[in-house]
């Protein structure tokens, strides 16, 4: 029972410190849907808990990030497979009236990128990871991260309305 208590204590400390960051990454990987991001992080943290005794302290951040990217990618795939549901009435949608709204254009555009390209862009340019760190999180080669992130960035440049950058410059 002592091992469990120790694991719980360490895991609790880690989650307390890192959860917000993981939700943020997940949100950007699932097109800004916070509820879905929460689901992704919960699943990822469960995987992390199972693996906790095998994960070295110095690599736990990378492991957690990798879990989030994997689960988010799986989530994307399952959404892709999910069949469209036809309804007679449009669902009610909340009015976006928060600061997040100003960046919703960028997040929406991120959502149009293929999953691996989006992950490369988010990890490299939003989270500021090195190429090696991003490759580890995505479980792919560094060359793949370079090409995916470069192409993703180029795609965003093409898609982002010019006015958005102007507004951004004005603050």
């Amino acid at each position: 029972m002592g091992r469990n208590s120790e694991r719980d204590r360490e895991f609790t400390e880690f989650v307390s410190a890192r959860r917000d960051g993981l939700v943020r990454v997940a949100a950007l990987l699932v097109s800004g849907d916070l509820a879905k991001a929460e689901d992704v992080v919960q699943t990822a943290l469960t995987k992390l808990y199972l693996a906790w005794p095998r994960v070295r302290p110095e690599t736990v951040d990378a492991y957690a990030r990798r879990c989030v990217v994997n689960v988010a990618t799986d989530e994307h795939r399952s959404l892709f497979r999910r069949r469209e549901q036809v309804r007679s009435q449009l669902p009610e949608t909340p009015v976006a009236d928060d600061p997040w709204n100003d960046n919703s254009t960028v997040v929406s555009l991120l959502g149009t990128l293929p999953a691996s390209m989006r992950a490369a862009v988010v990890l490299r340019y939003v989270e500021g990871l090195s190429i090696a760190e991003a490759a580890d999180a995505m479980r792919c080669s560094e060359g793949n991260v370079k090409s995916q992130s470069a192409r993703g960035l180029q795609r965003l440049r093409e898609l982002l309305p010019a006015g958005h950058l102007t507004n951004f410059a004005k603050g």
């Binding site: 340019y125 939003v126 500021g128 950058l165």
Partner: peptide, 9 residues
Amino acid sequence: VLKNLPDAV
């Protein structure tokens, strides 16, 4: 723009 996204999420 991307660099500033973390603060906005």
